[in-house]
Every structure is written in structure tokens, then in C-alpha cells.
């Protein structure tokens, strides 16, 4: 396939790639994700039980606790952090968490990344240029 390129705003200027995990709902890293396993624990979340470790995590924006920046930082030290984050509009907590943890973060696209990217797609996130590339589509097995 031809790769699909999305242009956004690079907020945390690092690079990462991996399989996409797409959340339609907002995420609170503190309380909503277990830093030791990388699994989503939020009882109200549709991806509860899925791991964000090494994934390109796509979600609208952060919610809840302001401790989330530390949770991301902790996850990066423990090796359970996502490889990159794509938001519709990022919030301060996610931005600071990503900057501290060397996780690329891009938001503010002309297309909604949640509609364009599917679970399992192989995605590259270049925070320096604000560019997201979907290099390989996963055809089956979507669970969102």
C-alpha cells in the first residue's frame, strides 16, 4: 500500500514507531494505566486490559489526574511506556509527561487521527517534524 501521511503539531520532539492502539475515549494515565504492566485499568474504559507498552497510542486527550505526567515518566523508566502518542488536542499533563520521558507527541491534525488510524496499523511518529506516517494497514482483527 501507499503510506498515508498526516501533518500535525509536534509537541514533544522525539521519534517512535510501532503498532497503533486507538482509544476513542480520553485517558488518565494516573489510576487509568498500571505503570508496572502498561495495561489500561480504568473501569470505565473500552480498552481496559489492553497494554499500551511499545504502542503508538492514539486518544483524544488526557483526563483526570494531574499526576499522569509522572506516570508516563515512571513508565518510561520501567519500559512500559508507549512508543509514541497521537492526540486530537493534547493537554498539559500529557505534554509534560512526554517531554520528560522522550516520548514523541503530535496533535492538531486536519483529519481526525482516531478515524484515520486503526488498531494494529504500523505507524511512525516524528515529533520533530509533526509528521505521522501510516506505513502498513492491519486489515482484520480490529477490536475498537
Amino acid at each position: 500500500m501507499n503510506k498515508i501521511i498526516l501533518f500535525g503539531r509536534g509537541l514533544s520532539k522525539f521519534y517512535g514507531e510501532g503498532e497503533a492502539l486507538v482509544s476513542r475515549e480520553a485517558i488518565s494515565f494516573f489510576g487509568g494505566v498500571d505503570p508496572y504492566s502498561g495495561k489500561i485499568t480504568d473501569i470505565s474504559h473500552h480498552l481496559r486490559g489492553h497494554s499500551v507498552k511499545g504502542k503508538i497510542l492514539v486518544f483524544p486527550h488526557g483526563k483526570g489526574s494531574t499526576v499522569g505526567a509522572y506516570t508516563l515518566y515512571q513508565m518510561s523508566k520501567l519500559g512500559t511506556a508507549p512508543a509514541g502518542i497521537i492526540n486530537i488536542i493534547a493537554d498539559h499533563v500529557t505534554i509534560v509527561g512526554c517531554i520528560l520521558s522522550n516520548i514523541p507527541l503530535i496533535d492538531d491534525f486536519t483529519l481526525n487521527p482516531i478515524d484515520v488510524i486503526s488498531n494494529g496499523d504500523y505507524v511512525r511518529v516524528d515529533g520533530r517534524r509533526g509528521v505521522v506516517e501510516i506505513v502498513q494497514r492491519k486489515l482484520k482483527g480490529n477490536f475498537s
Binding site: 494516573f30 505503570p35 489526574s65 494531574t66 499526576v67 505526567a69 509522572y70 506516570t71 515518566y73 515512571q74 518510561s76 523508566k77 520501567l78
Partner: peptide, 13 residues
């Protein structure tokens, strides 16, 4: 300032 409990920020925090 938030993120004060050792239970919330761990060794990294």
C-alpha cells in the same frame, strides 16, 4: 504541586 505520594510517583518520581 501534585504527585507527592510515593504510591503515585514511584521510584522515578
Amino acid at each position: 504541586i501534585s504527585g507527592i505520594s510515593y504510591s503515585t510517583i514511584g521510584d522515578a518520581g
